[in-house]
Design a protein around this nucleic acid. Structure first.
Lengths: 223, 223
DNA sequence: ATAATATTTTAGACTAATCTAAAAATATGA
DNA sequence: TCATATTTTTAGATTAGTCTAAAATATTAT
């Protein structure tokens, strides 16, 4: 098993990737786990030795599939416990976080599968965040900025962060709208702009700034 | 708050006192918390500094009322969690111990009071052990050998450990029977024999061997 | 392109809890 | 009572996680 602390680092890294994509920085992690950058570096070496993250000095980190599995399991437990506290023990949705932070580290397969059953297999927690199933798969996807996805991902546009008229008019002009398919063809290293294909049309470029403000989910593979 | 480890030591000491009375030995604790005597000595110093135990080198330990309070709270949490696992999550009574060992260290007043309510304020856990209430009082007392009680305790005799005819005849002869009041007048240091008063009659002496085989509970003060 | 700034890593130290081996205290028993 | 055995404590080392301060690397802005 992994230590309480290792689990917290993996969870922090997972959430940072979810927010900002791969290449998570030492300082960002230090912020999230409320420690100093030097301590983070030590832990990154340890997690890397255990093949839980991909780490090269000064280059930022990403999770290996092994590390992602661990992180997803912690998140699953956290969200199921939050659900339990609200549904069964009359906690308010804003009271549950700190207790769930502790409960998520309890080690028992049976405990968590029984809680899941007891709650009738919920798909989202009290904050509306999706709960991964026991295989680490989300039944419901949360929309994320286009900027966090990877080359060759195929997405469905679901919303915007910036609701300004100017931005919406821009989207209209380039042909991005709710429900449209967006395939990420390429990412330009220099300015992080993206070459994308909308509904199989001719590729276009959008800036990193634009990509950060367009929300999307991964398209589910059919067949 | 106290560390996970400190809590485990306090719980171990509490249980040893419950079994054998005050003056718990270093080795007995080492056995229970599965560590070495040297480690126990270190921890005893720490707990003593924090005024959680009474400790004099080589003399064995007892709990201060502060320490007992902490121990009782851990035991309360442990037993409520066991109850929850069996009643609500379909655990077998022999599957719950290890998980409850982890859950008992979760820090949340509200969590445990809500679990208590959810279970409708149970008085005993799935193993039949009494559950202390939030003030650390047992609503139901577990019978313990007379040998573990202290001077001036007033008890009610509830049973025996040794069911042999010889022992029962001896009890009959000295006037000890189910329901009789036993007041502990004095304990002889030399052989640990007890001077007791049965139903306010003339004091008699019983051996430590006998005292270990007579079960009793503390008499509840009326009025 | 280079100087200034910011980020990240290294080096070395600290704490809590643990261990082994040796010393000290206590208990046992002829 | 005095030697022996047992128990407990001390001394010194180890591990996980943390810290500060200094060095190395990367980024930014002129």
């Amino acid at each position: 098993m992994h230590s309480f602390t290792e689990e917290n680092y993996l969870k922090a890294i997972f959430k940072l990737i979810e927010q900002d994509g791969d290449g998570v920085t030492t300082n960002a992690i230090a912020d999230r786990v409320k420690t100093k950058a030097a301590s983070v570096t030590d832990m990154l070496k340890k997690l890397s030795d255990k093949k839980l993250i991909n780490y090269r000095k000064y280059q930022g980190v990403s999770l290996t599939s092994k590390g992602e599995k661990v992180a997803l399991n912690i998140i699953r437990k956290h969200r199921l416990w939050e659900m339990f506290l609200v549904e069964k023990l009359d906690f308010k949705w804003d009271e549950v976080h700190d207790v769930a932070e502790e409960l998520e580290h309890i080690n028992s397969e049976k405990l968590i599968s029984q809680i899941d059953k007891f709650l009738n297999y919920p798909k989202v927690d009290p904050h509306g965040d999706p709960i991964p199933d026991k295989n680490g798969k989300f039944q419901i996807q949360k929309s994320k900025p286009v900027s966090v996805f990877k080359q060759n991902d195929v997405l469905i546009m679901t919303g915007v962060v910036d609701h300004s008229a100017a931005f919406l008019q821009y989207l209209d002009k380039v042909g991005i709208a709710l429900g449209k398919e967006i395939k990420i063809k390429n990412m330009v290293e220099f300015d992080k702009s993206l070459q994308i294909i909308i509904n199989k049309n001719t590729p276009i470029f959008i800036s990193n700034e634009a990509a950060k403000n367009i929300l999307a989910i991964k398209k589910i593979k059919c067949g």
